[in-house]
Design a protein around this nucleic acid. Structure first.
Length: 516
DNA sequence: ATAGGGTTAG
């Protein structure tokens, strides 16, 4: 499908003479960028580790330059995978070790002692080095310690990395194994792949998983049904519906029995692919014939599929059929039904769903209220939508970023910019963190009103709160610059700043990691 | 315990 993360973007001449750190008119807040792990300068440890440490202690200053054009093969074969890994904001700060590596390792590995026993001494050392090194050095590190890696039980090392909260490093080790498959006596076996699939699935790294299994002929490894289900799901989340369907068929050919979850994932695949209602009916019939009981996942998935296609009657019929069999719908199922009618503008039906939820003691959640807000807003009642914020707070459900975004957007469309901005500030004051959609909505609103100064401010705010801009953000910013009619509002300073923003983001995040 | 569903932005 693609060779790079951004096929539409020109391949930037990385080593251009362009200044990386020109002084921008408005300075980027460096502290908001993903922290890079710091590496200690020296450790009293044996020669192997000394060697590894030399690699793992790059100069601290031009870090953002280093990964741009790394000498290792990784980028050639997995141009995007490493980017994705590097661009993920760190959830956990890597602790700077204060003592010898091994000591440090034993300090923080208490819960995994049993597993660690499987590792050889050298494995422990490798583990420590990998854990403590900046991500972009891990591959060099692996290369330089090839001998040790060949001795160590790789699956245990992978497991240990994962258990210690370093799934990104686990991925890098996995990549390294893949890269050395032919030159070394390494083997990618079923167990290693299954583990990697499980890790990526658990971390919801669908984009990475999807790209990874573009390279690995996964159907040749006879993985278990769960692993295949995870991969199908990853394909689905990245829009590769045909691949998902293909893998499902292969799985059947291999004689594996799909589980309830596999079927639910496939229902979702056809639902998202669209125009596949017959396929959905077919799968449901197949499930029934195999004796599977539909669960809440099955129901909400099928109903959402109806919603996308506007199949109101089909949704109603399916729902009624389930209830007649004694099925008690849960909140998520009601929510998807609510969306079907809300989207179609059938408010009486939507209200009756809310009533039914109440009667059945099915507790509404934030999504329920969000659907309600969306229904109001679609009908042009921005204030009524805003009033739901109060209602839900009173009933003990905190409005979330989606709730605020919906209302802010509605105010924006209604020409009530100040109301929208007030709500945006209120949102932040109450501790609700805006997400990329919230920022995009505010930016689009300001863009329409030609308020570039404020747009720049919002963009800075975005950076300082650690929210990565995506394709839509940049398009909104660029539209502001390019709009001829409003061009007089955009001065050289704005353009320069925006240019700097884009450049910095490119360097630091390798541009935004838009999932789609 | 493991794999899955619903809401927002150009």
């Amino acid at each position: 499908m693609e060779g790079t993360l951004f096929p539409s973007r020109p391949v930037l001449p990385i080593q251009t003479s362009r200044p990386i750190q020109p002084s921008p008119p408005v300075k980027f807040n460096a502290t908001t960028l993903p922290p890079l792990p710091q590496t200690p300068s020296s450790f009293p440890i044996d020669s192997l580790l000394q060697h590894l440490l030399n690699i793992s202690s790059p100069p601290n200053t031009p870090q953002n330059l280093k990964p741009l054009n790394p000498p290792h093969q990784t980028n050639a074969v997995f141009p995007s995978l490493q980017i994705s890994v590097d661009s993920t904001p760190k959830q956990h700060q890597l602790k700077k070790p204060t003592s010898v590596l091994v000591h440090n390792f034993e300090d923080k590995a208490k819960p995994e002692d049993g597993l660690i026993d499987f590792l050889t001494v050298k494995g422990k050392m490798m583990f420590n080095s990998i854990v403590e090194s900046p991500l972009h050095c891990v591959n060099e590190l692996c290369d330089s310690a090839k001998f040790e890696l060949l001795e160590v039980d790789l699956i245990s090392l992978l497991k240990a990395l994962d258990l210690s909260g370093n799934w990104e490093r686990a991925l890098l080790l996995f990549e390294w194994i893949m890269l050395n498959l032919h030159s070394e006596s390494l083997k990618l076996d079923k167990q290693i792949i299954e583990l990697m699939v499980r890790i990526l699935g658990r971390e919801s790294q669908h984009t990475i998983a999807s790209k990874l299994f573009e390279v690995i002929p996964i159907e040749e490894y006879s993985l278990d049904v769960r692993a295949y289900t995870t991969v199908i799901h990853a394909y689905s989340r990245t829009g590769k519906y045909e691949r998902a369907i293909d893998l499902f068929e292969k799985l059947m050919e291999m004689g594996l029995s799909p589980t309830l979850v596999t079927y639910n994932v496939m229902l979702d695949v056809y639902g998202k692919k669209g125009r596949s209602w017959n396929k959905i009916l077919g799968l449901l019939a197949e499930m029934k014939s195999k004796g599977f009981e539909f669960d809440d996942f099955t129901c909400s998935t099928v109903i959402s599929a109806c919603g996308r296609e506007g199949l109101l009657d089909e949704a109603k019929e399916f729902f009624a059929g389930l209830k007649s069999q004694g099925y008690v719908p849960g909140t998520v199922t009601y929510n998807s039904l609510l969306q079907v009618f809300g989207k179609a503008g059938v408010f009486m039906e939507a209200l009756s769903i809310l009533k039914e939820m109440e009667d059945n003691n099915c507790p509404p959640d934030a999504v329920t209220y969000n659907e309600l807000v969306a229904a109001y807003v679609r009908a042009g009642f921005a204030e009524e939508g805003a009033s739901v914020l109060k209602t839900m707070t009173q009933k003990g459900t905190m409005p979330n970023a989606v709730t605020y975004t919906t209302v802010i957007n509605a105010y924006g469309r209604a020409g009530k910019e100040e109301e929208a901005l007030r709500l945006f500030n209120q949102m932040k004051e109450t501790g609700c963190v805006p997400n990329v959609c919230t920022y995009n909505a505010v930016l689009a609103m300001l863009g329409k009103k030609s308020r570039p100064e404020e747009m720049i401010k919002i963009l800075c705010d975005m950076k300082s709160s650690g929210c990565a801009p995506n394709r839509i953000t940049w398009n909104t910013m660029l539209a502001m610059c390019g709009d001829k009619g409003k061009h007089k509002y955009v001065n050289q300073r704005h353009l320069q700043y925006l240019d700097q923003c884009i450049w910095t983001v490119w360097v630091r995040y390798r541009c935004c990691t838009d999932a789609r």
